[in-house]
C-alpha cells in the first residue's frame, strides 16, 4: 500500500530530473550554436577551460569580487557564501542536482556574476566551458 503511494512521487521526481537533464543539454546546445556562429573553428567545450575560468582572478570586475571562488570557495563541491552571509548551494552538479536546469536562472546569474567578476558579459564558449566543468564535478 505504502509503495503504491510512493510510486507517483518517484515517477514525478524522475520526470523532473529528466526534464532538467534535457534543459541542461538544450542550454549547452544553444551555447554551442552561438559559439559556432561566432567562430567556425569552434571545436567543442572544454572542462579544463571552464575550471580555469572558475579559478582565475580578473582585474576588470568589481574590486570585492575578483574571482568566482571568492563567494563559491575553491571547491565546486562545497557550499559557498554571499558577501552578505547567505549560503550558496555548491556549483557542482553532483552536489546540487538541480543546477543548470533552469535557463532563465542560468542567464541571470551569468549576466550578474560575469559583470561582477570579469567586468563584462561572458561569451558563449565561456558559459559552455563553465557548465561542462561543473557538470563533470
Amino acid at each position: 500500500m505504502r509503495s503504491l503511494l510512493i510510486l507517483p512521487a518517484v515517477i514525478a521526481l524522475l520526470a523532473t530530473v529528466d526534464a532538467e537533464a534535457g534543459a541542461r543539454q538544450a542550454l549547452l546546445d544553444g551555447f554551442a550554436t552561438q559559439a559556432k556562429a561566432a567562430d567556425s573553428g569552434f571545436a567543442g567545450f572544454s572542462a579544463s577551460r571552464g575550471e580555469n575560468l572558475f579559478r582565475t582572478s580578473f582585474a576588470g570586475g568589481k574590486p570585492d569580487t575578483p574571482a568566482c571562488t571568492v563567494c563559491h570557495t575553491p571547491s565546486p563541491l562545497k557550499q559557498g557564501e554571499t558577501r552578505a552571509g547567505k549560503p550558496i548551494e555548491p556549483m557542482a552538479l553532483s552536489a546540487s542536482p538541480d543546477r543548470y536546469g533552469d535557463p532563465k536562472k542560468v542567464a541571470k546569474w551569468f549576466r550578474r556574476n560575469c559583470k561582477s567578476v570579469l567586468g563584462r558579459e561572458c561569451t558563449a564558449p565561456e558559459k559552455g566551458d563553465f557548465i561542462t566543468f561543473m557538470t563533470g564535478q
Partner: peptide
C-alpha cells in the same frame, strides 16, 4: 541594481 553595493544584482 547593476551596481548594488559593489555587485551586479540586475533583474529583468
Amino acid at each position: 541594481l547593476d551596481d548594488h553595493f559593489g555587485e551586479d544584482a540586475s533583474l529583468d
